[in-house]
């Protein structure tokens, strides 16, 4: 397959996944805060901040990936988010927590933390790394790049 086409497909796929993930959370910040808090990893002040901001980071980064704008920042953001998700889910699994992962539609019990969620996030991480590296290599040194 044409490499450029592959990258376009991958970034649209990843972008749509993140837009949907973010959109499913913005309707109920309180339920999402509860899902984050169930991980028992963060002080409550940070839980509330994340519950408010994280869905919109997912949406913004997702839209930028779909439209291929600000690819460095968008891919890097998604990359960091997935690393954070992987750490959180691994930690929850290691502690034997049986909680909603909060990945999609918080408060509905749509998905529990589990190995499947972890594999999913590793795949998204790999795609984000690939997009980030490609954007990095494609960019020619130019002072007017941003």
């Amino acid at each position: 397959m044409n490499r450029t086409l592959l990258i376009v497909i991958l970034r649209i796929f990843l972008g749509v996944v993140f837009i949907l993930a973010g959109a499913s959370k913005i309707g109920n910040p309180a339920a999402f805060a509860e899902d984050i808090d169930n991980y028992r990893m963060l002080p409550y002040a940070l839980v509330t901040f994340l519950a408010i901001v994280l869905p919109w980071i997912e949406i913004c980064a997702g839209i930028l990936l779909v439209f291929g704008k600000f690819l460095h920042g968008a891919a890097f953001t998604v990359l960091v988010l997935n690393m954070v998700f992987i750490i959180a889910i691994s930690s929850a699994l290691a502690r034997g927590l049986s909680i909603d992962c909060g990945c999609f539609s918080p408060g509905t019990g749509a998905a529990k933390v589990g190995v499947l969620r972890l594999i999913e996030d590793f795949i998204f991480l790999a795609i984000a790394v690939y997009i980030f590296r490609t954007a990095h290599h494609k960019a020619k040194p130019s002072k007017a790049d941003f």
Binding site: P29, A31, I52, V53, L54, G73, A74, T77, D145
Partner: peptide
């Protein structure tokens, strides 16, 4: 450049997030 763009995403998201939470029926 990566950090600058990421920061911009974070700032815009924070703005949208707090606005959404303010108007949400189930705010945090």
């Amino acid at each position: 450049k990566t950090l600058l763009q990421s920061m911009l995403i974070l700032i815009i998201s924070a703005f949208l997030g707090f606005a959404n939470n303010y108007f949400s029926s189930q705010p945090v």
